[in-house]
Design a protein around this nucleic acid. Structure first.
Length: 619
RNA sequence: GCGCCCGUAGCUCAGCUGGAUAGAGUACCGGCUUCCGAAGCCGGGUGUCAGAGGUUCGAAUCCUCUCGGGCGCGCCA
């Protein structure tokens, strides 16, 4: 017997870790019923071989089942035999034969084969996929959703651009990406809280207020020298004009007063930072707190309102707009600093207060209170992240621009010092998108105000194309955003390609009406065996992948997996469409085919929906 | 200089976290509509996976080094 041969190479060893403590969140291999059933068969086979002595009893292999890449390898495959080869000290193919012999075929499982270096390939009958089609039709827009997250709470903070100007195309990627992963996580059973952190305090906002005020003085007829470090965009003029309309000249002060004793600006041979800080101080003094606040808030409200409108039109919704100012109002920043001090990782040097983040792996220590008594942005961020974790989320996700990557270690260090769990925080970095128009790079520089706004982009290519293109590539990858391609209504454009597939199904059903034919869905479900074409098999199999793709895209924070999947699915559909007619005389066949294409339409609509892209009835 | 990310077809990118012959789109060439939308389909070829070592049954994937590109290294945010 073969088992004798195998028994000779008995040895002990442990494969994998049966007591894996990996949190479910990081489980990256999605499950489905067929896969689980096959895994169970293999597990049973291993046990059987262990009890008859063919395999060592003290090993607990992790059984992995994968979809095959090539249909000649069947539908699913496992590398189990190759994993067992080492501890069992046997040839993989010998073990594979033992395993296969221990499994009975039957039901959906038509055939098992051994191939290549020792893969075990499972071949399923066509009817294995039929239930999936009926599931899609029954579950409709809920299909693909799962309770994988079991209601665990996740907070996703994204965009969070300073309200000092309109959103630009860089923020757009963070918006599309953050919204997509939030929706994806929600779809697989997490309770997601979407949040925008509003930096409505701090120096940048003061610079905006000063910029607005100076433009306002200009409108009052004063002759001003606009600071090099001020915000130069036209929107500042608009805000100043509103201010002037509402207050007339009531806030006016002579330019000589405003600039009195202010250090020289850079063009005049001075320091632009000192110049603007001096201006801010003068303006605050002259206007006094109440009036200064009026100017400040005029800018804040106008810009924040613009940002909110932009995101809303982009299909990006938030549960909360968290104000940085509310942190100071609650003394949260001070409390955070005090707690850090108690942790013993804070010291004073040169009049400033430093957090010893190097104790937790950061490159250098960081200032939390400046020598002028002002707390730093970092101090606010410590308080904010502490606040997030104290709100009891199971996971906290930050989506940041990749240029902030150096900032990650210090935030995690602070959380560690405070006894919070830094591992609950995932910082996802998103690279800037480079725009191309007619093959040329679109030049952009933020400071000069010469950047393409998100709104301009949306108006140029449309919300659908913008949302889709932004998430088409891996987040941490730089991406080239081809404006002409995004605009083009051709097969080159993946968005149109997918939407067209959806519209085509709708169109078929309109034709059904015109031809006065009928669609009996129940009969279709009962007669799916009529779908015997290869194209139909292919489509059914790929439809069954949707829940897995969704889960993988969500858990790995990779919406691009979904865009690629949808493109493949659309391709399967178009191919099928060209090869076969759906509206045939044979009612049984017609019903089955209409069930299949309606299921396809549903999955496309569901997938696009999660990406914030519309699924049109006609193009 | 130090740290992080990256290098895959002419171009833009995937590659299911170590698996089978490395794949799509685009570009280029040629075909397919009396028929549900041709914004579609079919066919045709392309690789020193930047390079060199290493780890093992097996590497584009993990480790080290080199080369090349991006970003970050403030009492800015």
């Amino acid at each position: 017997m073969k088992s004798g041969k195998v028994a000779r190479c008995l040895t002990s060893g442990i494969i994998g870790n049966p007591f894996s403590t990996q949190p479910t969140y990081h489980r990256r291999r999605p499950s489905n019923h067929l896969k689980d059933q096959l895994a169970q068969l293999l597990t049973d086979a291993v046990v059987k071989l262990q009890t008859n002595g063919a395999l060592p009893a003290d090993i607990t292999p992790t059984v992995m089942i994968e979809r095959t890449r090539d249909r000649s390898h069947g539908d699913y495959a496992s590398n189990l035999a190759m994993l067992l080869a080492k501890p069992a000290r046997c040839k993989p193919r010998d073990i594979a034969e033992q395993l296969v012999a221990a499994i009975e075929t039957g039901g959906h499982l038509q055939k098992i084969a051994i191939a290549g270096p020792g893969f075990i390939n499972f071949f399923l009958g066509p009817e294995a996929w039929h239930a999936g089609i009926s599931d899609i039709l029954a579950q409709g827009d809920q299909f693909g959703r799962s309770d994988h997250g079991k209601g665990a709470r996740i907070q996703v903070e994204f965009v969070s651009a300073n309200p000092t100007g309109p959103l630009h195309v860089g923020h757009g990627r963070g918006a599309a990406y953050g919204a997509a992963i939030a929706d994806l996580l929600e779809a697989i059973g997490y309770v997601v809280h979407r949040e925008y952190y509003v930096n409505d305090a701090g120096r940048q906002m003061d610079i905006l207020a000063a910029s607005v005020y100076l433009r306002y003085l200009d409108l009052c007829g004063e002759d001003i020298m606009f600071p090099a470090n001020g915000y130069q965009g036209d929107y500042v003029w608009d805000i100043a004009a509103t201010l002037h309309r509402e207050h007339g000249d009531a806030l006016q002060h002579p330019v000589a007063e405003v600039f009195r004793e202010v250090p020289a600006d850079e063009p005049a041979g001075g320091d632009k930072e000192k110049h603007i800080d001096g201006l801010i101080t003068r303006i605050r003094t002259l206007l006094e707190e109440t009036r200064y606040r009026q100017v400040f808030d005029e800018g804040l409200t106008a810009i924040l309102g613009n940002i909110r409108q932009d995101l809303k039109e982009f299909g990006v919704v938030y549960d909360d707009w968290f104000s940085e100012r509310s942190l100071s109002a609650n003394r949260a920043v001070e409390t955070g600093i005090e707690r850090l001090q108690k942790s013993g990782h804070v010291y004073e040097q040169n009049g400033a207060l430093w957090f010893k983040s190097t104790d937790f792996g950061d490159e250098k220590d960081r200032v939390i209170v400046r020598d002028n008594g002002q707390t730093t942005y970092f101090a606010s961020d410590i308080a904010y992240h502490l606040n997030k974790l104290e709100r009891g989320y199971d996971r906290v996700i930050d989506v940041w621009g990749a240029d902030h990557h150096g900032y990650v270690p210090r935030v995690k260090a602070a959380l560690k010092a405070l006894g919070a769990e830094p591992d609950k925080l995932d910082v996802l970095l998103v690279q800037f998108a480079i725009l191309y128009r007619q093959g040329e790079k679109v030049a952009m520089s933020t400071r000069s105000g010469q950047f393409v706004t998100l709104r301009e982009l949306r108006h140029e290519v449309g919300n659908d194309a913008a949302r889709f293109f932004y998430v088409m590539r891996k987040g941490e990858q730089h991406m080239d955003f081809d404006l002409d391609l995004a605009k083009s209504q051709s097969n080159d454009n993946p968005v149109y390609y997918i939407q067209y597939a959806h519209a085509r199904v709708r169109s078929v059903f309109r034709q059904l009406q015109e031809k006065q034919l009928e669609w009996d869905q129940a009969a279709g479900s009962a007669g799916l065996t009529a779908l015997s074409e290869d194209h139909e098999q292919e489509l059914m199999i790929n439809l069954s992948r949707y829940p897995e793709v969704l889960e993988a895209a969500a858990l790995n924070h990779e919406p691009h997996l979904l865009t690629h999947y949808l493109r493949e699915l659309a391709n399967d559909f178009h191919t099928y469409y060209n090869a076969h007619t759906f509206l045939v005389e044979d009612a049984a066949l017609r019903n089955a085919r209409l069930n299949l294409i309606e299921a396809t339409r549903q999955v496309i609509a569901n997938g696009l929906g999660l990406l914030g892209v519309s699924a049109p009835d006609n193009m």
